[in-house]
């Protein structure tokens, strides 16, 4: 597991580069690697834009019968009051409030979050080979 503290665009870049390096250890196709890196970029950027920074943890997942990649983001920002809305199409990239979460959800196999969290946001996204 590799942890990144993210506060600005430069950190986001580091996270994406780190993700790309780690993704080479997972037998994804080339196109899939870039998709997952895109999702990582969106999630990391959300920390900067919406939460004033946070932490990203990247892990290669190895289970008995499958391999995958996990990205966890955690922040102590304002949190997401309306998850269904945040995951709704159109509430995405078109406006500047866009979180890009519908896109992340489409790219990754799993997207978990704690709807009842009182402080900040924690998102766990996984993609399996």
């Amino acid at each position: 597991m590799v942890e990144f503290v993210v506060t600005d665009g430069r950190d986001v870049k580091n996270v994406v580069e780190g993700a790309q390096a780690m993704l080479r250890e997972v037998p994804f196709g080339r196109a899939e690697r870039f998709l997952v890196a895109t999702a990582v970029s969106e999630l990391a950027r959300n920390l900067v834009v919406h939460a004033g920074g946070g932490v990203v943890r990247l892990s290669v997942l190895e289970e008995q019968d499958r391999r995958g990649f996990e990205v966890v983001t955690e922040d102590e920002g304002p949190g997401i009051a309306d998850w269904p809305l945040a995951l709704t199409e159109g509430y995405s990239t078109a406006n500047s409030l866009g979180l890009g979460l519908p896109g992340v959800q489409r790219i990754m196999d799993e997207l978990d979050f704690d709807e009842n969290r009182l402080v900040g946001t924690r998102i766990v996204a996984r993609k399996w080979v």
């Binding site: 196109a31 870039f34 895109t38 199409e89 790219i107």
Partner: peptide, 13 residues
């Protein structure tokens, strides 16, 4: 590139 095109499509761009 094709890979970028599919990423953009998934992101809704």
């Amino acid at each position: 590139k094709p890979g970028l095109a599919s990423a953009l499509a998934l992101l809704g761009i």
